[in-house]
Design a binder for these strands. Structure first.
Lengths: 403, 403
DNA sequence: GTCGGTTTGTTCGAGCTCCGAACTTTATGC
DNA sequence: GCATAAAGTTCGGAGCTCGAACAAACCGAC
């Protein structure tokens, strides 16, 4: 039940009815495929005749395909319908500070190609190289129709201008990625924050999310970012910058953050924080056992390996990180009470160790802990890429923006 | 753009079109009244004929009324349309721990009666007395049609069961208020958390909120509660308990809260916190100047009076409260980036002193501070009561729940 | 006083959509 | 071979908006 926005609304026509019901049908097929027209009639409540007409049109538009014929104890055999996964191709791009991954996907987030390249430091060089790679990919994987390019970025996209803003880990200032890439490739480009992309991925192609309408994704890398889906809808705030809970103080007088605040959650619970904890634990006990007083930073990946090998110093650093991660997650659980909170990042590799610590912190600090399932994401890159596919295709599957 | 919820959707029929367009018309009249059919045609983009038909039906249903005839330099004079504020009566109820306020309202949140009673300690006694008062009110103020009863409560309402849960300041455990009051009065009852009610009030009858779709209300009394409207829609989380940012730790090892957590925002920035700060400032410097070592608690209202009189101890306590209020608000600004954040509570009486401190904290701690306007609410009781009216009437003015 | 120009508001047929009943198609079992 | 049953199609009816034509109401110039 949302207020009608009088500065951008759309009146309804007869075609609106068809549009709404077509989308419902498309979603019902997606959910229940393979499925007969008769079953769609029962799921939707529409008349048999109406279902037939809509199905016919969706088949003509190549959204659906008729498949096998079913078997029933009595009566005429039903013709099953299913999605045509090749209806739309999507180019998914996952930009991370070190590397950028590209994928060719069909409508069901099945990737037919996956490749990566280093992320160029210079923004304009990056745009040029990325555009090149995309055109090459399209040439190498010709499809009937590419629907668009979805790009996940460690930054926020300004509502309206669609420009990249606040991307500290990339070191880029405000930047228009959309226009040049659209010009070079000839395809529409959609940009989204990585955490938002993960949330979208979970919403549209997640595992156990039937009827889940409130979902939060927390991405943990060298920063922490939050993507929120509330009431079945991405929350971007008035400017697109909503979700920066990573820059909320967890310790009021904690370490200074580049955002200007002190003791930010991401200063205490990001990969970088674990690296710092590990380094500090070496220096504090001066005559340490290992006598390695090398203050050279150990990469987070190495710390994870050490944890897997049972190294106590690494475990301690990881535990500190997990503790603070849990406190921040408790904030989100208390404040947003989502059905699902998904953690995305390398840290999920050792979730058997991190999960219980996070769970304990949430249980102690959030009296609403029972409503939220906290789950680790399978693969970060896959999550973000599935998110870019959802980003491009959601306009066909979501409710039409009525009124 | 929201996902279609396959467990509760509604297919579209021809009437859906009429429904959508009627609601748009109703909102356009509300926004621009008095307004002619010809102007409505221009605002909506619908055909003149369609506007006439819809207007005719809305007049027949008593939503609109024809009013004066306008004057134009040329041509036929337009007949102005305006809302019929007496179309629906609403009983608004604001339950606070000490007192409960009742109001009779018309469709435009104009109150024709306002009265209050002590809030009974015992829930069942409370229900009985409230029902009585409501029936008396209805008898004393007969209207063509009462649309329903809206009740604002310092607690959360469980989604689905519509029961009151988590109402610590009232001291009531889980409770069904809806059923008995509906039975006694014969009117439908809608319950909502006070902070959510304030957010709804601001959304539907606020001052400067054209096009504002992201709005947060923070209620500050003996607890702190948050109501969120994101994407033009109330956020209740999966169970109805979303918004309890008051129970997020601000100081990890701070004072123990009854919720089980430590250093909760509301332990540091609520009215009760200011009362505690004031009491502590008397005891800490042992040979204090005033030599009043009375640890008896001074009510928050008295502290505000002392602040208005310039009492330094009271000012210091208030400043501490304001400082922590600002830190919590910075969390909301950073995480949700709303257009407007409204503060509701007695503390707004001294907003000239509190506002700058809050603003400073937000500026220092939230790099997104520029997107959010932080405003004090005029009157708490009025805010909550207007919210209850919006609560009851929003189903007629909001977009239909399509798909 | 009348007539052209202008704007508001109404009327009515066309086109689209869903509904619902009747019909066709295709299967099983006696 | 016939009754029964289920899937899917056909077609007239009703509701809605669109768009053009029409009626109403007003101003100012001649």
């Amino acid at each position: 039940m949302h207020k009608i926005n009088l500065s951008k609304f759309q009146v309804a026509t007869n075609e609106t009815v068809r549009d709404i019901n077509s989308r419902i049908m498309l979603n019902l097929v997606r959910r229940h495929q393979p499925v007969s027209r008769a079953d769609l009639m029962r799921y939707s409540g529409l008349q048999r005749s109406t279902v037939s007409v809509i199905a016919g049109r969706l088949i003509a538009d190549r959204w659906l395909r008729e498949g096998a014929v079913g078997n029933l104890p009595r009566g005429r055999r039903p013709t099953f319908l299913h999605l045509n996964p090749e209806r739309c191709g999507v180019i998914g791009v996952d930009v991370q500070p070190a590397r950028t991954t590209l994928a060719v996907s069909n409508m069901e987030s099945q990737f037919s190609a996956l490749e990566s390249m280093p992320t160029a430091r210079d923004p304009s060089e990056f745009v040029a190289r990325l555009s090149h790679r995309i055109t090459d990919l399209i040439r190498a994987h010709p499809k009937k129709s590419y629907e668009g390019i979805g790009i996940s970025l460690p930054g926020r996209i300004e509502v309206g201008s669609e420009r990249l803003i606040f991307a500290p880990t990339l070191g880029w200032s405000e930047l228009d990625l959309k226009t040049p890439i659209e010009r070079e490739t000839g395809l529409p480009v959609k940009l989204e924050n990585a955490a938002n992309a993960c949330a979208l991925a979970e919403l549209w192609s997640g595992q156990h999310i039937d009827g889940v309408n409130n979902l939060v994704a927390v991405t943990v890398s060298d920063d922490i970012s939050v993507g929120m889906i509330l009431n079945g809808q991405l929350v971007r705030g008035s400017t697109g910058v909503a979700g920066e809970f990573g820059h909320v103080s967890q310790v009021l007088d904690g370490p200074k953050c580049r955002c200007g605040n002190s003791g930010c959650w991401e200063m205490l619970a990001s990969n970088a924080a674990a690296v710092r904890y590990y380094a500090e634990s070496a220096s504090v006990p001066k005559g340490a056992i290992g006598s390695k007083s090398d203050m050279a930073t150990v990469p987070f990946g190495d710390i994870l390996r050490l944890v897997e090998q049972g190294d106590p110093r690494a475990c301690k650093a990881l535990n500190q990180m997990a503790h603070h991660l849990g406190i921040g997650i408790a904030m989100l659980v208390t404040g947003l009470a989502p059905d699902v909170l998904m953690v995305v990042g390398e840290v999920t590799r050792v979730w058997d160790k991190v999960g219980p610590i996070v769970g304990e912190a949430v249980k102690r600090r959030s009296f609403t802990h029972a409503v939220t399932r906290i789950v680790p994401a399978g693969s970060e890159v896959q999550s973000r890429l599935r998110g870019t596919v959802a980003l491009v295709l959601q306009k066909h599957f979501s409710a039409p923006s009525i009124a």
